[in-house]
Computed example of a mutant assay.
Amino acid sequence: MANERFNLLSLQEAMDILGVSRATIDRWRKDKQLPHIKVGKEIWIDKEKLEAWVYLHSRQHQPAERPKERPGREVTVGYQSGAALLWSTLIIKRLGLFEEELKRTSPSGSYRVTWANAPNGMELVESLIGGRVQIASIGDYPMIASHSLSRVLPRFRPLFLAFDGKTSNGGGLALVVPKGSNLRYADELTDRAISTVGHSSASHRLRQWMSANGLVSDPVVHRTMSECLDGIVKGNVGASFMWEPYLSWARSIGAGVPFPSEGFGGDYLTGIMADGNWAAGHEDVIISYLKAHLRAHAFMRSNPDKASVIIAEESGYPVQVVAGVIPSIRWDASLYERDVHTLRRLNETHAGLIPAAEDRGQPGFGPGQPYLQYAAEGLKLPGLSDAPLIGEWSDEEYY
């Protein structure tokens, strides 16, 4: 109940009166000086001051217009069925988790969800820039590139929402040579064709590895990952830098073997990005998607066999290959200090690849808006901190 003696409303009562989410009212408190009183951990709002604030920030003084019927909203989610660390989207899509959460969040709302399968992450970044996709699942290199692009594209505001699959010490990425090639040392690949997907997490790490080994390969062939596997099968490339599930697929058919080498730039991370301009007006949709994302992670951790069947049917990969890959991936959406350090190192090696411009404070890879926190709260999961979780990955905190 309201504190009638002081004419105060609880935060929940104010949210009910205004018809907004916790994320929205927190943003109003921060950006629009919504008057409030904080006593300990409790937040109270003076009813009279709230009414005055609403009047100042509304159009009540203008002639009232008959509200127009709100049309259904369309949300396009971009994903990559060909990247194992991003397979959670296939679970969301197949089980209808996003649509289910949208109905729970806004029972009277009308939404149309479409899905866009892309061959690589940079294509999805282009779609975010062009407004064709609102939420996208991409690798760490496209995440870094999107932040760099925001410095030279004034209207582009990429917003990091959560992580998807993670692997440690370069796991899930490897340089593969055709079986029987007898290549053992880096310098033996000089002047050999090496194939990978251009402008991807794989190509970025390949460049790092080549530079560390003083290797000059002419040419580095940019192809789709399917073409990279085909090149290994036919033996018409010296090597291919590949990601899962293509690594396991190549081994399962006896076509290729990993080339002996050290790690490729530390941990391999993937995540969820959104168009920040669009997200500001669709917080309920963002939180609904993140709830679906967390549910998909829980499903893959607790039901790997069922998840393998679904992913195999959605992607076309052999179920045996999928089943072998899923347990090797850490399905954890939360942000750790370890992840921040990984992204920082990637960003440092990425410097200079995109024209420099003034950093206008565009969203980076900190916690940002607390959408993941609200999603976790909505699912009754342990609370998430405003700051990155301390230290290394924990076995106790999975999201």
Rank of each mutant, 00 (worst) to 15 (best):
R155V: 03
N169P: 01
G82A: 12
P35F: 11
V177M: 13
P158C: 09
Y374C: 02
E348H: 11
S226H: 13
D140E: 14
Y399I: 01
L290I: 08
Y371P: 01
N236D: 15
T167P: 01
E65P: 00
V319P: 05
V75Q: 11
V152M: 14
S127T: 01
L372S: 06
V197D: 00
V20F: 03
H147W: 13
L229R: 03
V325S: 06
K93N: 04
Y141R: 03
R223K: 10
E74Y: 07
P245L: 09
H297F: 15
G265T: 01
I17Y: 12
A52H: 03
F98D: 00
R157G: 03
I91F: 04
R192G: 04
L294P: 06
A376E: 06
H204Y: 15
K30G: 05
P260Q: 05
K38F: 04
L124S: 03
A323I: 04
G214K: 10
G352P: 12
S88M: 08
S146W: 02
L124Y: 07
A280C: 05
S394L: 08
L335T: 06
G263T: 11
G324R: 07
Y336F: 15
D140N: 11
R338T: 05
A387G: 08
H204P: 00
Y246E: 08
L175A: 08
G214R: 10
G383Q: 13
P327F: 13
L372F: 09
R151H: 15
D218Q: 08
G378D: 13
P388A: 12
N120Y: 13
Y374V: 00
A84T: 01
E65V: 10
E101I: 04
K291M: 14
G361T: 06
M143Q: 08
S252A: 15
P67R: 12
I253M: 14
A116Y: 12
V321A: 09
I390T: 15
G131R: 01
A212E: 15
G180Q: 12
P219R: 07
S248A: 14
F6W: 11
K30C: 08
K38V: 10
R295M: 14
N236K: 07
F365T: 00
K291W: 08
E313M: 05
V177C: 13
V216H: 13
W209A: 12
A174C: 11
G171P: 04
A145K: 02
L102G: 03
A292C: 11
S315H: 07
N347R: 12
V39T: 12
V177W: 07
A376G: 09
L343Q: 05
V152Q: 14
I144R: 00
S328K: 15
P258G: 07
L161I: 13
M273A: 09
Y79F: 15
V321C: 11
R155H: 12
D230R: 11
Y55N: 05
R70S: 11
R330C: 12
N120I: 02
S217Q: 02
K380V: 06
E396W: 08
S328A: 15
V309S: 06
E348Y: 11
L269G: 05
D164N: 15
G316D: 09
P382E: 10
P154D: 14
A84F: 02
A292V: 07
E337W: 06
G170W: 06
E244C: 06
A323W: 02
L159M: 14
A212I: 07
N169H: 13
D359V: 09
L18N: 04
Q62V: 10
Y111K: 04
R70L: 13
Y268D: 05
R5Y: 10
G361H: 11
G72W: 10
A239C: 10
